[in-house]
């Protein structure tokens, strides 16, 4: 699905600039944006919200066998990052020495090519993160 054009296009806001949303009732930030706040449901009031561009690593793995489309990128780091507003996302960690990729490490967002599976097809750009200190 990584080469599917309308899907790539629909996700620009989310993938380029971390567009998510926020429940004004309970104060929880969601990324990606959710159609319903799972805690407040109909009492929830969701408003669009850009996510902060920094956070910390909650867990990580170094992938040595990647799925189709990523087979030549190995090894690469995948991490769950908790952003400064507590929303969490899964992302690749790039440009970071192995010793610095650890739980609790501070990371910042970068703009990268994420999926380029067809040399004649569309390129999917979006967020990755790197360890910042």
């Amino acid at each position: 699905m990584n080469g599917a054009l309308p899907l790539i296009w629909r996700k620009f806001g989310e993938r380029y600039d971390l567009d998510g949303n926020f429940c004004e009732t309970c104060g929880t930030a969601f990324f990606p944006a959710r159609p319903v706040c799972p805690s407040c449901r109909r009492r929830g009031k969701l408003v669009p919200k850009k996510m902060p561009k920094t956070g910390k690593i909650v867990s990580f793995t170094e992938v040595f066998t990647g799925p189709a489309g990523f087979e030549h990128e190995t090894p690469y780091f995948i991490a769950i990052v908790e952003l400064d507003n507590k929303a969490r996302l899964l992302t690749q960690i790039v440009d970071s020495e192995k010793e610095r990729v650890k739980i609790g490490a501070k990371v910042g967002k970068v703009f990268r090519k994420i999926s380029d599976i067809d040399p004649e097809g569309p390129i999917a750009y979006g967020y990755k993160f790197k360890v910042v200190c």
Binding site: F111, R112, K113, I114, Y125
Partner: peptide, 16 residues
């Protein structure tokens, strides 16, 4: 540039 960098990603970083 790393494998996931091209003139577009470099442009975005410089522009930002």
């Amino acid at each position: 540039g790393s494998f996931d960098e091209d003139a577009c990603t470099i442009s975005v970083e410089a522009a930002r």
